[in-house]
Design a protein around this nucleic acid. Structure first.
Lengths: 209, 209
DNA sequence: CAGGTTACGTATTGATTGTTACGTTACCAA
DNA sequence: TTGGTAACGTAACAATCAATACGTAACCTG
Protein backbone atom coordinates (compact mmCIF):
# COMPACT_ATOMS: atom_id res chain seq x y z
CA UNK A 1 0.00 0.00 0.00
CA UNK A 2 2.52 2.59 1.13
CA UNK A 3 5.35 0.61 -0.37
CA UNK A 4 7.49 0.36 2.75
CA UNK A 5 9.80 -2.18 1.15
CA UNK A 6 11.88 -1.66 -1.97
CA UNK A 7 10.67 1.28 -4.04
CA UNK A 8 10.09 0.80 -7.74
CA UNK A 9 11.11 4.18 -9.09
CA UNK A 10 10.22 7.64 -8.00
CA UNK A 11 11.83 10.00 -5.55
CA UNK A 12 13.00 8.20 -2.41
CA UNK A 13 11.49 8.99 0.95
CA UNK A 14 13.49 11.56 2.89
CA UNK A 15 12.65 10.16 6.32
CA UNK A 16 12.47 6.86 8.21
CA UNK A 17 8.80 5.76 8.31
CA UNK A 18 9.47 3.45 11.23
CA UNK A 19 10.93 6.24 13.35
CA UNK A 20 8.09 8.57 12.39
CA UNK A 21 5.55 5.91 13.31
CA UNK A 22 7.29 5.36 16.62
CA UNK A 23 7.08 9.07 17.42
CA UNK A 24 3.41 9.13 16.48
CA UNK A 25 2.72 6.11 18.67
CA UNK A 26 4.25 7.74 21.71
CA UNK A 27 2.21 10.89 21.13
CA UNK A 28 -1.04 8.94 20.77
CA UNK A 29 -0.08 6.95 23.84
CA UNK A 30 0.35 10.11 25.85
CA UNK A 31 -2.63 12.16 24.67
CA UNK A 32 -5.05 9.69 23.13
CA UNK A 33 -6.33 9.54 19.57
CA UNK A 34 -8.61 12.53 19.30
CA UNK A 35 -6.66 14.88 21.55
CA UNK A 36 -3.57 14.38 19.41
CA UNK A 37 -3.71 16.99 16.67
CA UNK A 38 -1.93 16.86 13.37
CA UNK A 39 0.07 19.90 14.40
CA UNK A 40 1.42 17.95 17.34
CA UNK A 41 2.12 14.93 15.17
CA UNK A 42 3.82 17.11 12.59
CA UNK A 43 6.23 18.46 15.17
CA UNK A 44 6.91 15.15 16.93
CA UNK A 45 7.42 13.28 13.68
CA UNK A 46 9.45 16.09 12.15
CA UNK A 47 7.40 15.96 8.98
CA UNK A 48 5.17 18.11 6.81
CA UNK A 49 1.50 17.25 6.37
CA UNK A 50 1.92 15.87 2.85
CA UNK A 51 4.70 13.60 4.07
CA UNK A 52 2.43 12.19 6.72
CA UNK A 53 -0.53 11.79 4.39
CA UNK A 54 1.52 10.31 1.62
CA UNK A 55 3.01 7.70 3.92
CA UNK A 56 0.05 6.94 6.18
CA UNK A 57 -3.08 7.94 4.23
CA UNK A 58 -4.80 9.83 7.05
CA UNK A 59 -4.89 10.28 10.81
CA UNK A 60 -7.06 7.25 11.42
CA UNK A 61 -4.82 4.96 9.38
CA UNK A 62 -1.79 6.38 11.13
CA UNK A 63 -3.34 5.56 14.48
CA UNK A 64 -4.22 2.03 13.44
CA UNK A 65 -0.68 1.60 12.24
CA UNK A 66 0.53 2.94 15.59
CA UNK A 67 -1.56 0.29 17.35
CA UNK A 68 0.13 -2.46 15.38
CA UNK A 69 3.51 -0.90 16.09
CA UNK A 70 2.65 -0.76 19.78
CA UNK A 71 1.60 -4.37 19.75
CA UNK A 72 4.87 -5.33 18.11
CA UNK A 73 7.20 -3.28 20.28
CA UNK A 74 5.62 -2.76 23.70
CA UNK A 75 3.43 -5.75 24.46
CA UNK A 76 6.03 -8.45 24.21
CA UNK A 77 5.98 -9.00 27.96
CA UNK A 78 2.41 -10.28 27.73
CA UNK A 79 3.02 -12.66 24.86
CA UNK A 80 6.16 -13.92 26.55
CA UNK A 81 4.39 -14.49 29.86
CA UNK A 82 1.43 -16.30 28.35
CA UNK A 83 3.61 -18.56 26.22
CA UNK A 84 6.29 -19.21 28.84
CA UNK A 85 6.86 -22.91 29.65
CA UNK A 86 5.85 -22.51 33.28
CA UNK A 87 2.84 -23.49 35.39
CA UNK A 88 -0.28 -21.43 34.81
CA UNK A 89 -0.12 -19.53 38.07
CA UNK A 90 3.47 -18.60 37.38
CA UNK A 91 2.56 -17.43 33.86
CA UNK A 92 -0.10 -15.16 35.27
CA UNK A 93 2.36 -13.82 37.82
CA UNK A 94 4.80 -13.07 35.01
CA UNK A 95 2.02 -11.33 33.14
CA UNK A 96 1.04 -9.03 35.99
CA UNK A 97 4.60 -8.28 37.02
CA UNK A 98 5.49 -7.59 33.41
CA UNK A 99 2.60 -5.16 33.23
CA UNK A 100 3.78 -3.43 36.41
CA UNK A 101 7.07 -2.75 34.68
CA UNK A 102 5.75 -2.02 31.18
CA UNK A 103 3.19 0.47 32.48
CA UNK A 104 5.83 2.52 34.29
CA UNK A 105 8.77 2.59 31.92
CA UNK A 106 10.85 5.74 32.30
CA UNK A 107 10.58 7.98 29.25
CA UNK A 108 7.35 6.32 28.17
CA UNK A 109 3.76 7.38 28.85
CA UNK A 110 2.22 5.60 31.82
CA UNK A 111 -0.24 2.78 31.31
CA UNK A 112 -1.36 1.04 28.15
CA UNK A 113 -2.07 2.60 24.77
CA UNK A 114 -5.05 0.30 24.28
CA UNK A 115 -6.66 2.10 27.21
CA UNK A 116 -5.24 5.60 26.97
CA UNK A 117 -5.89 5.71 23.23
CA UNK A 118 -9.61 6.20 23.76
CA UNK A 119 -12.08 5.08 26.39
CA UNK A 120 -14.64 7.64 25.35
CA UNK A 121 -14.81 9.18 21.90
CA UNK A 122 -16.84 11.50 19.73
CA UNK A 123 -19.38 9.86 17.40
CA UNK A 124 -17.00 10.41 14.47
CA UNK A 125 -14.24 8.48 16.21
CA UNK A 126 -16.26 5.57 17.42
CA UNK A 127 -14.64 3.28 14.90
CA UNK A 128 -11.35 3.92 16.66
CA UNK A 129 -12.92 3.37 20.08
CA UNK A 130 -14.31 0.07 18.83
CA UNK A 131 -10.95 -1.03 17.53
CA UNK A 132 -9.36 -0.33 20.88
CA UNK A 133 -12.12 -2.23 22.59
CA UNK A 134 -11.35 -5.16 20.29
CA UNK A 135 -7.69 -5.06 21.33
CA UNK A 136 -8.68 -5.08 24.99
CA UNK A 137 -11.03 -7.99 24.46
CA UNK A 138 -8.35 -9.86 22.58
CA UNK A 139 -6.04 -9.43 25.56
CA UNK A 140 -8.67 -10.88 27.82
CA UNK A 141 -9.27 -13.72 25.38
CA UNK A 142 -5.54 -14.49 25.35
CA UNK A 143 -5.57 -14.77 29.13
CA UNK A 144 -8.63 -17.01 28.99
CA UNK A 145 -6.91 -19.21 26.42
CA UNK A 146 -3.88 -19.64 28.66
CA UNK A 147 -6.10 -20.50 31.61
CA UNK A 148 -8.00 -22.97 29.49
CA UNK A 149 -4.75 -24.67 28.56
CA UNK A 150 -3.89 -24.99 32.22
CA UNK A 151 -7.27 -26.43 33.02
CA UNK A 152 -7.04 -28.99 30.25
CA UNK A 153 -3.62 -29.96 31.54
CA UNK A 154 -5.25 -30.79 34.84
CA UNK A 155 -3.37 -27.97 36.50
CA UNK A 156 -6.53 -26.05 37.33
CA UNK A 157 -9.84 -27.38 38.70
CA UNK A 158 -12.16 -28.64 36.00
CA UNK A 159 -15.00 -26.59 37.45
CA UNK A 160 -13.11 -23.32 37.08
CA UNK A 161 -14.63 -20.66 34.84
CA UNK A 162 -11.69 -19.43 32.82
CA UNK A 163 -13.75 -16.62 31.31
CA UNK A 164 -14.64 -15.33 34.72
CA UNK A 165 -11.09 -15.49 36.02
CA UNK A 166 -9.76 -13.95 32.80
CA UNK A 167 -12.17 -11.06 33.20
CA UNK A 168 -10.85 -10.48 36.69
CA UNK A 169 -7.24 -10.55 35.59
CA UNK A 170 -7.87 -8.33 32.58
CA UNK A 171 -9.73 -5.94 34.86
CA UNK A 172 -6.83 -5.87 37.30
CA UNK A 173 -4.41 -5.05 34.49
CA UNK A 174 -6.69 -2.29 33.25
CA UNK A 175 -6.85 -0.90 36.76
CA UNK A 176 -3.06 -1.02 36.92
CA UNK A 177 -2.95 0.98 33.71
CA UNK A 178 -5.06 3.74 35.24
CA UNK A 179 -3.05 3.65 38.46
CA UNK A 180 0.09 4.09 36.38
CA UNK A 181 -1.46 7.08 34.67
CA UNK A 182 -2.23 8.53 38.05
CA UNK A 183 1.35 8.33 39.20
CA UNK A 184 1.72 4.87 40.72
CA UNK A 185 5.30 3.58 40.79
CA UNK A 186 6.53 0.23 39.53
CA UNK A 187 6.63 -0.94 43.13
CA UNK A 188 3.06 0.24 43.72
CA UNK A 189 1.90 -1.80 40.75
CA UNK A 190 3.88 -4.82 41.81
CA UNK A 191 2.23 -4.67 45.22
CA UNK A 192 -1.16 -4.33 43.56
CA UNK A 193 -0.40 -7.35 41.39
CA UNK A 194 0.74 -9.32 44.42
CA UNK A 195 -2.52 -8.60 46.19
CA UNK A 196 -4.47 -9.54 43.08
CA UNK A 197 -2.66 -12.85 42.95
CA UNK A 198 -3.68 -13.55 46.52
CA UNK A 199 -7.12 -14.29 45.12
CA UNK A 200 -5.71 -17.15 43.09
CA UNK A 201 -5.57 -19.87 45.73
CA UNK A 202 -9.00 -18.97 47.04
CA UNK A 203 -10.50 -19.17 43.56
CA UNK A 204 -8.90 -22.55 42.94
CA UNK A 205 -10.29 -23.84 46.20
CA UNK A 206 -13.77 -22.55 45.37
CA UNK A 207 -13.76 -24.05 41.88
CA UNK A 208 -12.62 -27.40 43.18
CA UNK A 209 -15.95 -27.99 44.93
CA UNK B 1 -21.72 33.20 40.72
CA UNK B 2 -24.43 32.19 38.26
CA UNK B 3 -27.10 33.05 40.76
CA UNK B 4 -28.86 29.70 40.86
CA UNK B 5 -30.95 30.66 43.87
CA UNK B 6 -33.37 33.54 44.04
CA UNK B 7 -32.85 36.05 41.28
CA UNK B 8 -32.58 39.71 42.14
CA UNK B 9 -34.24 41.32 39.23
CA UNK B 10 -33.75 40.84 35.51
CA UNK B 11 -35.37 38.51 33.07
CA UNK B 12 -35.94 35.05 34.52
CA UNK B 13 -34.16 32.05 33.08
CA UNK B 14 -36.27 30.19 30.53
CA UNK B 15 -34.87 26.73 31.35
CA UNK B 16 -34.07 24.51 34.29
CA UNK B 17 -30.32 24.75 34.93
CA UNK B 18 -30.33 21.51 36.90
CA UNK B 19 -31.90 19.57 34.05
CA UNK B 20 -29.52 21.14 31.57
CA UNK B 21 -26.56 20.25 33.78
CA UNK B 22 -27.83 16.70 34.07
CA UNK B 23 -28.02 16.37 30.30
CA UNK B 24 -24.50 17.79 29.95
CA UNK B 25 -23.20 15.35 32.56
CA UNK B 26 -24.57 12.36 30.71
CA UNK B 27 -23.02 13.57 27.47
CA UNK B 28 -19.61 14.10 29.07
CA UNK B 29 -19.95 10.72 30.72
CA UNK B 30 -20.54 9.06 27.38
CA UNK B 31 -18.03 10.86 25.19
CA UNK B 32 -15.50 12.41 27.56
CA UNK B 33 -14.60 16.05 28.02
CA UNK B 34 -12.79 16.95 24.84
CA UNK B 35 -14.76 14.77 22.46
CA UNK B 36 -17.99 16.41 23.58
CA UNK B 37 -18.50 19.42 21.35
CA UNK B 38 -20.60 22.44 22.11
CA UNK B 39 -22.86 21.53 19.24
CA UNK B 40 -23.60 18.21 20.94
CA UNK B 41 -24.15 19.91 24.27
CA UNK B 42 -26.38 22.48 22.65
CA UNK B 43 -28.64 19.79 21.26
CA UNK B 44 -28.67 17.60 24.36
CA UNK B 45 -29.32 20.52 26.69
CA UNK B 46 -31.85 22.09 24.37
CA UNK B 47 -30.17 25.47 24.66
CA UNK B 48 -28.48 28.13 22.55
CA UNK B 49 -24.81 28.90 23.02
CA UNK B 50 -25.42 32.17 24.89
CA UNK B 51 -27.73 30.37 27.29
CA UNK B 52 -25.01 27.87 28.08
CA UNK B 53 -22.31 30.48 28.43
CA UNK B 54 -24.45 32.79 30.49
CA UNK B 55 -25.33 30.05 32.92
CA UNK B 56 -22.06 28.11 33.05
CA UNK B 57 -19.32 30.55 31.99
CA UNK B 58 -17.55 28.22 29.57
CA UNK B 59 -17.10 24.57 28.61
CA UNK B 60 -14.51 23.90 31.26
CA UNK B 61 -16.65 25.33 34.05
CA UNK B 62 -19.63 23.39 32.77
CA UNK B 63 -17.62 20.20 32.94
CA UNK B 64 -16.41 20.92 36.47
CA UNK B 65 -19.99 21.59 37.45
CA UNK B 66 -20.97 18.29 35.83
CA UNK B 67 -18.36 16.52 37.95
CA UNK B 68 -19.90 17.91 41.12
CA UNK B 69 -23.35 16.96 39.88
CA UNK B 70 -22.10 13.45 39.14
CA UNK B 71 -20.60 13.19 42.58
CA UNK B 72 -23.88 14.28 44.12
CA UNK B 73 -26.21 12.09 42.09
CA UNK B 74 -24.32 8.98 40.95
CA UNK B 75 -21.69 8.16 43.53
CA UNK B 76 -23.94 7.75 46.53
CA UNK B 77 -23.39 3.99 46.57
CA UNK B 78 -19.74 4.55 47.46
CA UNK B 79 -20.35 7.04 50.25
CA UNK B 80 -23.11 4.81 51.61
CA UNK B 81 -20.92 1.72 51.54
CA UNK B 82 -17.94 3.36 53.20
CA UNK B 83 -20.04 4.91 55.95
CA UNK B 84 -22.30 1.92 56.55
CA UNK B 85 -22.29 0.62 60.14
CA UNK B 86 -20.93 -2.77 59.17
CA UNK B 87 -17.60 -4.58 59.51
CA UNK B 88 -14.86 -3.35 57.20
CA UNK B 89 -14.88 -6.36 54.92
CA UNK B 90 -18.63 -6.03 54.50
CA UNK B 91 -18.28 -2.32 53.72
CA UNK B 92 -15.78 -3.09 50.98
CA UNK B 93 -18.10 -5.77 49.61
CA UNK B 94 -20.93 -3.24 49.53
CA UNK B 95 -18.61 -0.83 47.74
CA UNK B 96 -17.61 -3.25 44.99
CA UNK B 97 -21.10 -4.64 44.53
CA UNK B 98 -22.49 -1.11 44.40
CA UNK B 99 -19.96 -0.28 41.71
CA UNK B 100 -20.99 -3.36 39.75
CA UNK B 101 -24.51 -2.01 39.66
CA UNK B 102 -23.70 1.68 39.24
CA UNK B 103 -21.36 1.05 36.32
CA UNK B 104 -24.00 -0.86 34.37
CA UNK B 105 -27.18 1.12 34.95
CA UNK B 106 -29.61 0.83 32.02
CA UNK B 107 -29.97 4.12 30.21
CA UNK B 108 -26.70 5.42 31.61
CA UNK B 109 -23.23 5.33 30.07
CA UNK B 110 -21.14 2.42 31.25
CA UNK B 111 -18.41 2.91 33.83
CA UNK B 112 -17.45 5.95 35.83
CA UNK B 113 -17.32 9.56 34.66
CA UNK B 114 -14.14 10.15 36.64
CA UNK B 115 -12.45 7.68 34.32
CA UNK B 116 -14.33 8.14 31.05
CA UNK B 117 -14.13 11.92 31.36
CA UNK B 118 -10.47 11.94 30.39
CA UNK B 119 -7.60 9.53 30.86
CA UNK B 120 -5.53 11.20 28.19
CA UNK B 121 -5.94 14.79 27.12
CA UNK B 122 -4.49 17.46 24.88
CA UNK B 123 -2.04 19.89 26.51
CA UNK B 124 -4.80 22.53 26.63
CA UNK B 125 -7.07 20.25 28.61
CA UNK B 126 -4.56 18.96 31.09
CA UNK B 127 -6.14 20.96 33.86
CA UNK B 128 -9.26 18.88 33.36
CA UNK B 129 -7.26 15.66 33.28
CA UNK B 130 -5.60 16.68 36.53
CA UNK B 131 -8.92 17.40 38.18
CA UNK B 132 -10.21 13.97 37.23
CA UNK B 133 -7.04 12.42 38.57
CA UNK B 134 -7.68 14.25 41.83
CA UNK B 135 -11.19 12.76 42.00
CA UNK B 136 -9.80 9.28 41.44
CA UNK B 137 -7.16 9.78 44.10
CA UNK B 138 -9.79 11.06 46.50
CA UNK B 139 -11.77 7.89 45.95
CA UNK B 140 -8.74 5.81 46.77
CA UNK B 141 -8.07 7.97 49.84
CA UNK B 142 -11.64 7.44 51.01
CA UNK B 143 -11.16 3.69 50.79
CA UNK B 144 -7.87 3.96 52.66
CA UNK B 145 -9.58 6.02 55.35
CA UNK B 146 -12.23 3.37 55.83
CA UNK B 147 -9.61 0.64 56.03
CA UNK B 148 -7.65 2.72 58.53
CA UNK B 149 -10.74 3.00 60.69
CA UNK B 150 -11.15 -0.75 60.63
CA UNK B 151 -7.54 -1.27 61.55
CA UNK B 152 -7.75 1.13 64.48
CA UNK B 153 -10.84 -0.69 65.65
CA UNK B 154 -8.74 -3.82 65.87
CA UNK B 155 -10.77 -5.38 63.08
CA UNK B 156 -7.81 -5.57 60.70
CA UNK B 157 -4.23 -6.64 61.46
CA UNK B 158 -2.09 -3.82 62.81
CA UNK B 159 0.61 -4.64 60.26
CA UNK B 160 -1.72 -4.16 57.31
CA UNK B 161 -0.81 -1.43 54.83
CA UNK B 162 -4.10 0.32 54.18
CA UNK B 163 -2.60 2.39 51.38
CA UNK B 164 -1.50 -0.71 49.57
CA UNK B 165 -4.84 -2.46 49.96
CA UNK B 166 -6.70 0.71 49.01
CA UNK B 167 -4.65 0.96 45.84
CA UNK B 168 -5.64 -2.59 44.96
CA UNK B 169 -9.32 -1.96 45.59
CA UNK B 170 -9.31 1.35 43.72
CA UNK B 171 -7.54 -0.38 40.86
CA UNK B 172 -10.14 -3.14 40.80
CA UNK B 173 -12.94 -0.60 40.63
CA UNK B 174 -11.19 1.24 37.82
CA UNK B 175 -10.80 -2.03 35.99
CA UNK B 176 -14.49 -2.70 36.51
CA UNK B 177 -15.23 0.67 34.96
CA UNK B 178 -13.33 -0.23 31.81
CA UNK B 179 -14.94 -3.66 31.71
CA UNK B 180 -18.33 -1.98 31.90
CA UNK B 181 -17.38 0.26 28.99
CA UNK B 182 -16.41 -2.81 27.04
CA UNK B 183 -19.80 -4.40 27.51
CA UNK B 184 -19.54 -6.37 30.74
CA UNK B 185 -22.89 -7.06 32.41
CA UNK B 186 -23.81 -6.36 36.01
CA UNK B 187 -23.35 -10.05 36.72
CA UNK B 188 -19.93 -10.05 35.08
CA UNK B 189 -18.85 -7.21 37.33
CA UNK B 190 -20.30 -8.86 40.41
CA UNK B 191 -18.30 -11.98 39.62
CA UNK B 192 -15.20 -9.87 39.10
CA UNK B 193 -15.79 -8.19 42.46
CA UNK B 194 -16.31 -11.55 44.14
CA UNK B 195 -12.99 -12.78 42.81
CA UNK B 196 -11.32 -9.57 43.92
CA UNK B 197 -12.68 -10.06 47.42
CA UNK B 198 -11.19 -13.54 47.52
CA UNK B 199 -7.86 -11.81 48.03
CA UNK B 200 -9.13 -10.32 51.28
CA UNK B 201 -8.61 -13.25 53.63
CA UNK B 202 -5.19 -13.99 52.19
CA UNK B 203 -4.08 -10.41 52.66
CA UNK B 204 -5.29 -10.39 56.25
CA UNK B 205 -3.35 -13.56 56.94
CA UNK B 206 -0.21 -12.14 55.39
CA UNK B 207 -0.45 -8.90 57.32
CA UNK B 208 -1.00 -10.72 60.59
CA UNK B 209 2.57 -12.09 60.58
C1' DC C 1 -44.99 53.67 35.49
C1' DA C 2 -39.90 54.53 35.04
C1' DG C 3 -35.10 52.61 35.98
C1' DG C 4 -32.19 48.88 36.63
C1' DT C 5 -30.95 44.36 35.57
C1' DT C 6 -30.57 39.96 33.46
C1' DA C 7 -31.58 36.54 30.00
C1' DC C 8 -33.21 36.10 25.37
C1' DG C 9 -32.51 35.00 20.00
C1' DT C 10 -29.84 35.79 15.84
C1' DA C 11 -25.80 35.89 13.65
C1' DT C 12 -21.02 35.75 13.62
C1' DT C 13 -16.31 35.81 15.35
C1' DG C 14 -11.14 34.21 15.13
C1' DA C 15 -8.70 30.08 15.79
C1' DT C 16 -7.81 25.39 14.92
C1' DT C 17 -9.21 21.03 12.96
C1' DG C 18 -7.86 17.39 9.31
C1' DT C 19 -6.78 17.40 4.55
C1' DT C 20 -5.25 18.57 -0.20
C1' DA C 21 -3.73 21.34 -4.89
C1' DC C 22 0.09 22.35 -7.29
C1' DG C 23 4.44 22.95 -9.13
C1' DT C 24 9.20 21.02 -8.23
C1' DT C 25 12.73 17.67 -7.31
C1' DA C 26 14.93 13.21 -7.22
C1' DC C 27 15.33 8.56 -8.24
C1' DC C 28 14.90 4.13 -11.63
C1' DA C 29 14.38 1.79 -16.14
C1' DA C 30 15.19 2.02 -21.05
C1' DT D 1 19.50 11.17 -22.16
C1' DT D 2 14.65 10.57 -21.99
C1' DG D 3 10.24 9.10 -19.82
C1' DG D 4 7.88 7.44 -15.90
C1' DT D 5 7.04 7.69 -11.14
C1' DA D 6 6.71 9.09 -6.50
C1' DA D 7 7.86 12.18 -2.69
C1' DC D 8 9.12 16.86 -1.96
C1' DG D 9 7.87 21.95 -0.04
C1' DT D 10 4.73 25.80 -0.02
C1' DA D 11 0.39 27.34 0.61
C1' DA D 12 -4.20 27.01 1.22
C1' DC D 13 -8.60 24.47 1.61
C1' DA D 14 -13.56 23.76 3.75
C1' DA D 15 -15.35 22.44 8.11
C1' DT D 16 -15.66 22.62 12.86
C1' DC D 17 -14.09 24.28 17.26
C1' DA D 18 -15.25 27.23 21.49
C1' DA D 19 -16.90 31.66 22.42
C1' DT D 20 -19.37 36.53 21.69
C1' DA D 21 -21.55 41.14 19.89
C1' DC D 22 -25.68 43.17 19.74
C1' DG D 23 -30.20 44.55 19.92
C1' DT D 24 -34.59 42.87 22.18
C1' DA D 25 -37.61 41.04 25.74
C1' DA D 26 -39.02 40.10 30.47
C1' DC D 27 -38.77 40.48 35.23
C1' DC D 28 -38.15 43.23 40.14
C1' DT D 29 -37.66 47.49 42.85
C1' DG D 30 -38.92 52.09 43.87
Amino acid sequence: MENFGKSRGGRPRAFDPEAALDAAMHLFWEHGYEATSLAMLREAMGLTPPQIYNAFTDKETLFRRALVHYHETEVGFALDALSAPVPTEEAIRLLLMGAAQAYTRPGKPGGCLFISGALAASPQAQGIADELKAYRRASEAAIAARLGKGREAGELPAGLSVERLAKYLAGVMQGMSIQARDGASTEDLRALAETALAAWAAEMRKAAD
